[in-house]
Amino acid sequence: MNGADVQVWSFVTAGLMFIVGLYAIVFMENLIKKVIGVMLIGDAVNLVLITSGFKPGGIVPIIGEELYNNASGLFQGFADQAAYSLPFALVLTNIVIGASTLAVLLGLTIKLYQRYNSLSVTTIFKEDES
């Protein structure tokens, strides 16, 4: 077992989360659980991005005060060791987007519940085919 294994299994975890989320969206009866399925898919994609930025045996790509004071030149050693931080920036954006989508979806869930007095998909989307 080493760091590279962590990367592979992390991708597998993300894939499983994606499948669980998709399953929840397609097969779950309860609206709130469908919403959680959407959240899980977003989390799975975030995990893929984070894992692709991960470097086995690397360091966190943040230049602390200590490192800054002791550094000489262009932080060459730091750049070699640090994880790739561009995906992390993308993930931060996606987390915020995911949270706002989730909030809108939950609001809609409440509205639909008030209308139909049920959270069941078959009751709410019954006459909605075609």
Partner: peptide, 15 residues
Amino acid sequence: LLYQRLLAADVAITQ
């Protein structure tokens, strides 16, 4: 916590 272990400290705080 997993994000933290995967060296993404800033994302881990937000998450």
